[in-house]
């Protein structure tokens, strides 16, 4: 506590909050990625009747740390024909929205870096930089596979952003706020997922597409495009793309938890248990992440035209209809 007091005295309360929040978020991002890569490999292995990593540490849980050290110590190769400035900028730019998004996510009742009244909007506004970084990286690589991957990534992200925002809009109308803490507070009795299950489903599908995960992983479809937009990246630059992907999984799942699954509130009927909100929050978030991993190893990849048709002909009309219907319901109820 004394150290904290010193820090607050030195920096002032606001700046101290920023510094501590940033350090915490960076730590969370790293640990989360290390854990999720391990989880992904383990779940994939068990779905395919294999064992998965098992050599390093109990159940191979330290495997990703070893992999991480390998990636850090690797040479950063810059191919000769790339656009140097943009090639180096892209992995850094892909990380910006990740850091910004964590600012407004309510991890528990009091653990929240900044409770902005337009918090939800912040996450979606900055997620566009993610698309942009992918595009810049793919273009700067000067490689046809990278460019194709980048074009696909952008087409897909732009398309799936529409139903995503439309469903989020129904939630915002329902809870009458863009502030994350108020959205959680409005679910104190009944979670939004029970009021609007269709919205939750649309959100989860679009979030999977937004994070470029299978069955929507055509931007990096290995069998057609080598590795898509990050084909030319190596070492830590590649690792940054990877880190951003797993952090984005955490973010979309955390936002889903906040919007639909009651945030840091306990499961219905289990409120008497002395479990802090933080644990509930992370438990729900990681269950959602587990579901996306499960989906990835269960469904085959969509073809590009199927993907686009699914979005424009099914998801967007469904999301629009949902919005109109719920606007009517809200009007009737109030």
């Amino acid at each position: 506590m004394a150290a904290w007091q010193n820090l607050v005295n030195f920096l002032g309360p606001d700046l101290a909050r920023i510094v501590v929040g940033l350090v915490g978020v960076l730590a969370l991002v790293q640990v989360n990625a290390l854990f999720l890569v391990w989880l992904e490999r383990k779940v994939a292995a068990h779905i395919q009747l294999r064992i998965g990593p098992k050599e390093v540490g109990p159940f191979g849980i330290l495997q990703t740390i070893v992999d991480g050290i390998k990636l850090v110590s690797k040479e950063l190769i810059t191919p000769r024909h790339v656009d140097r400035k943009l090639f180096m900028l892209a992995p850094i730019a892909v990380f910006l929205p990740v850091l910004v998004s964590f600012v407004v996510i309510p991890f528990s009742e009091r653990l929240l870096i900044r409770d902005m009244n337009v918090g939800l909007l912040l996450i979606f506004a900055f997620s566009t930089f993610n698309v942009l970084a992918v595009l810049v990286g793919g273009w700067a690589s000067n490689n046809k596979y990278s460019l194709l991957g980048a074009v696909r990534a952008v087409a897909q992200n732009v398309a799936y952003e529409i139903p995503l925002l439309l469903t989020v809009l129904s939630v915002v109308m329902w809870s009458n706020s863009l502030q994350m803490s108020e959205i959680v507070a409005s679910q104190s009795k009944i979670w939004h997922v029970f009021w609007m299950p269709v919205a939750a489903l649309i959100y989860l599908i679009c979030a999977t597409a937004e994070t470029n995960r299978a069955p929507f992983d055509i931007p990096e479809a290995e069998s057609e495009l080598v590795a898509g937009f990050h084909t030319e990246y190596s070492g830590m630059r590649f690792a940054l793309f990877f880190l951003a992907e797993y952090s984005n999984m955490l973010i979309v799942s955390a936002v889903a938890t906040t919007l639909f699954f009651g945030g840091w509130k306990s499961l219905p009927g289990l409120g008497f248990l002395p479990v802090p909100g933080l644990i509930w929050f992370f438990a729900k978030t990681y269950v959602l992440i587990f579901v996306t991993i499960w989906v990835r190893w269960t469904f085959p990849r969509l073809r590009f035209d199927q993907l686009m048709n699914f979005c424009w002909k099914i998801m967007i009309p469904a999301a629009l209809l949902h919005l109109i219907v719920y606007a009517g319901i809200i009007k009737l109820l109030r």
Binding site: V118, A125, T128, L132, L135, V158
Partner: peptide, 15 residues
């Protein structure tokens, strides 16, 4: 400010 990012950067510049 956020609408500016969402619309001008996210939609218009991407197109």
């Amino acid at each position: 400010a956020l609408m500016e990012l969402l619309i001008y950067v996210g939609a218009i510049c991407i197109s």
